[in-house]
Design a protein around this nucleic acid. Structure first.
Lengths: 248, 248
DNA sequence: CGCAGGCTTTGATGTAAATCAAGATCAGGA
DNA sequence: TCCTGATCTTGATTTACATCAAAGCCTGCG
């Protein structure tokens, strides 16, 4: 459990534990109080659209529970998911008036929203909020770039393995245990959503999931419940560069 | 010419006009002086590596002149470019010790570097530097997500058209004129580099460039000098969603 | 119960782009 | 000048994935 999360847990977070992780890792109580005044919750049902690309967006928010997706669409309907929002993830851009992507609730979803103007005002006076947001944005940028490698250069099988690995890891980190040995989770995405994320068709996703199952890399109970008997094996299938830094 | 650039031009920027655009859009003279103390320049020849992924990186920097690329590589050698750094672009991450990508000079390159520790210290005391950096990072994130759409869903021809459009636009913005009607520029990338950027092979890039030439979408003098007789036509070929926001 | 509408799987076929393979073009150096 | 190596083009062939098509499988609802 990283130091920073410790700190958060020890705060009096009320019913929005995520908020502090998202915007307020080093916050003081008076800032907490200010955040309190400008926050509100919104709930969405699975499948509902939170906001359409181009819509006026007068809030920023973080996910409390559930999963949301960011997608972009070409005129002819080709879709590409560009982000997956899990609990604690932040969405919205200070200083921009309209949404840049379609945001959709994949599961039932609760978001903790902050009205944009007061949030921006607070950012100006409390520097570490901006700094925390910078950190988070840099993390997202890294994730986006990893995804570019996946989209540009990985095979369908590697893409599926990578996605399963990412979901398993994020799932495990929420439960505060590292993915060693066997891991089990429920897929929060349909085959079509997986396809939209991976730049594939749903048929190819289905075939490759079947192939990974056939080869014993994953086990399936029903269509959604996945267990990964050997996480390292999955990571090999994902084709990732495993040296992970530390050359010089 | 946007207001912000006006502001910059009117600063006494010495020989590093870019620095202020990169980190210091609203800066005061004492901050300028502090930046001055921790900055230094580094030059690289075309083809030289600035830093390898995983190497210790004790600076952040912005490009003054020339072009650099960020690339990621799979163990088996498959390469994907994840960023193109043009003059004024920023590279490096406050709060991280090692480089996450290979950074390579595509042309002769001059970078304005700031030692990381003092830069981080300054960020803590001068909030708007962090805010400027946040804006830039959010822009980069948007660009990365647009690139994800390209990599995941566009055809080879659309990819090439998109890349030419991006280079034309950025080139034009540096010259402070908007790309209306005919535009002319030199390709700063080899066919192979274009391929690495677009998730294609160099042969496919070559074929599609030839096809666009054959169809009159672009004109070529030699292999690198491109002129685009009709920018809108090129954008149609790029397949981008042209409604560009403003639905609700 | 039985049917309807999402999902998902699986098969047959088509195709865009990769791969393999020659050459062509160009710039720089001996 | 010609050679050399890098870059680029073009052609022939292969292949991974898309597309088209049909069924299977759940879940919920009348």
């Amino acid at each position: 459990m990283p130091m920073q999360d410790m700190h958060l847990v020890h705060h009096e977070c009320g019913d929005c534990p995520i908020r502090h992780r998202a915007v307020c890792a080093r916050c003081e109580s008076d800032e907490l109080a200010r955040l309190e005044q400008i926050k509100y919750y919104r709930s969405f049902q699975a499948g509902q659209t939170v906001i359409w690309s181009g819509d006026r967006m007068d809030f920023v928010a973080s996910v409390v529970t559930g999963i949301a997706t960011l997608t972009q669409t070409l005129e002819d309907g080709r879709r590409q998911m560009v982000g997956l929002l899990l609990p604690s993830d932040f969405v919205g851009r200070p200083g921009r008036a309209t949404a840049a992507y379609d945001v959709t609730a994949t599961t039932d979803l609760v978001m903790c929203c902050f009205r944009k103007k007061p949030f921006e005002d607070m950012m100006l006076t409390t520097p570490h909020v901006a700094q925390r947001l910078l950190e988070m944005t840099l993390d997202e940028l890294d994730a986006a770039r990893e995804w570019m490698l996946l989209l540009g250069r990985k095979t369908a099988r590697e893409k599926i393995a990578s996605l399963l690995g990412i979901i398993a890891r994020r799932d495990a980190s929420l439960k505060l245990k590292a993915p060693k040995g066997a891991v089990t989770f429920d897929l929060p995405l349909t085959r079509e959503e997986m396809a939209d994320y991976l730049g594939l068709t749903l048929e190819t996703v289905s075939r490759q999931v079947s192939a990974l199952k056939r080869d014993g890399v994953i086990l399936l109970e029903g269509k959604r419940h996945v267990t990964i008997p050997d996480f390292d094996r999955l990571m090999e299938e994902a084709g990732d560069d495993s040296d992970g830094g530390m050359l010089g």
